[in-house]
Structure formats: structure tokens, C-alpha cells
Amino acid sequence: MATKNKTLRRNLIALSLIAPFTLTFLLVFAWPTYKVIQLSFTDAPLIGAGEWVGLDNYRDLLGDRLFWIALKNNGYFLLLTIIPTTAIALAIALAVNRLKGWVQALILAVFFLPYILPVSVVTLIWAWMLDFQFGILQPVIEFFVGERVAVFRDPYWVMPMIAVVTIWWTNGFNVLLFLAGLRNIPQELYEAAALDGATPRQKFLRVTWPLLWPVTALVLTLQLILQLKLFDQVYLLSQGGPFNTSQVLLLLVYREAFQQNDGGYASAVALVLFVIIMVVSILQFQLLRIRGKR
């Protein structure tokens, strides 16, 4: 009897402890998600109820040329960002890790600074720097390609340049993750490797890289999720143009919902993106983990 009471009390305490989170989660995540799923099977406008249309929205979506363009652009953007940003962050972290004391703190702060800027400031900075007439980077572009380029109005330049801006903006955080990972590798392992006859290259390939792999897997996965959610930079820099060459899924959702007032269809697109992100990130993380375990 006494133990039963005790168990009950413990369970009540446990429940009361997780209640705030559970309620918040249900209210701001589970409920809206459920509504979006529901909405995607109707022809509802942005505000107000609509008629049940079954799978019509999804059928439309498969025939929507813009959807496929956006999907392809999202994929292109992943290619442009994920591996480069990971490689750059790792290189910077390796370099910063060799510095000591306040110099290290200073350099780290310099690399981290862009991350704390709001996206509007970031895009403004780059819009200035790349301005066709006055941008200080135009001479650089001119040097390499022989002429000035209005990069955000050029079908070939627009996605790579948005990728550059994005990497510049978000890279500091990845550097931080890699740096934490590097600091977790005991110095003694490098000393043991030095005694075992490892060159700096071999130390990196046989000690640093494998021991850093969990962090690398984390960075890759976080990047995958983050970059699939691309919206702000495109919206502010190119609005999906020119000729839809920077059209991406979230921009499509925004257009359908807020400009075309087609809440049902927008929900269907959003849901597809949600599923893509979930499946791809879980798949990638599992694959990377398995590779690390081998």
C-alpha cells in the first residue's frame, strides 16, 4: 500500500515536470502540424475553412512545373553549401586550434561574428559588396571573368552567390562545433602518434579525422536541415529570380499561401518539404553513424 502510494507520487511528480514541455510541444508543434496536414487535403484559402478535396493538391503538385524547379534548386543549393561549408569550417577550426590565448579568442570571434547578424543585415552587406556599380567585390569578379556581373540577376550566378552568402553567414557555428570536437581529442594521442612515426598528414588522417567523425556527421546533418529550409536569403536577394533560377520550395509555399491565397496547396508543398527533410536527415545521420561505427 505504502509503496503503491509512493509510486503514484513519483509518477505525478514526473508528469508535472514534463507537463510544461509537453503542453508547449502539443500547442505550438503537434497541433499546427496536424492542421497543416488537414489543410493540405482541402482547397481552403489562407484564412477560413475550405472544402475537402482529397489528394487533389498532391496531384496538382506532381504536375506543377514550378514545384519541380524549386525541388531541383533546393538540391542544387545543398550541393553548393553542405560539403563546402563543412570543409571550410573544418579547415578554419584546424587553423584556429593551433593558435593560443587571446589571439585564438580574437580570430574565433572574427569568424563567429557573421553568425550573430540578422539575415537582413547579412543580405544588405552582400548586396552592397556585390552591387553592380559600386560593389567592392565587382573588381574581383571583373578580374576573373573579364566583366562586371549583376550576380543576383544572373541565372548562373544567383544560386552560387546565395550559397556564398549563406556559408559566410552560418559558418561560424560549424567552426565552433569542430573546435569543440578538436579540443576533445587528447594531446597524448598526437604524442603517441608522433612516437609511432606519423607525419602531420597521417596524424590528421588516422587520428583527427576518425575521432572527429561524430562531429562531422552532426555538422553535415544540421547543415542539411538548415539549408533545405532556405528562404530568407533568396527572398531578400533575388526573390526567386531570374526566371525562377533561385525558386525554392519554401518560397513556393510563401507565394501560394500569402500571394495566391491558396492555403491548401501551400500546406501540401510544406508537408512534402517536411517529409523530405525528415527522411533525408534521419537517413543521412544513420548512414554517417554506421560509417563511424565500422
Binding site: P186, E188, L189, E191, A192, A194, L195, D196, G197, A198, R206, V207, P210, L211
Partner: peptide, 19 residues
């Protein structure tokens, strides 16, 4: 260099490669 001295060392915390 350490590797060229013909010495081997056993560290206090073993320093085994965990992977």
C-alpha cells in the same frame, strides 16, 4: 624527431587510439 630516436613510450593515461 621522436620517431627516429628508437624509443617507445607508455603514457600514464595509456593514450590508446579509441577508434
Amino acid at each position: 624527431e621522436p620517431a627516429d630516436r628508437g624509443v617507445a613510450m607508455v603514457f600514464q593515461n595509456y593514450a590508446l587510439y579509441p577508434h
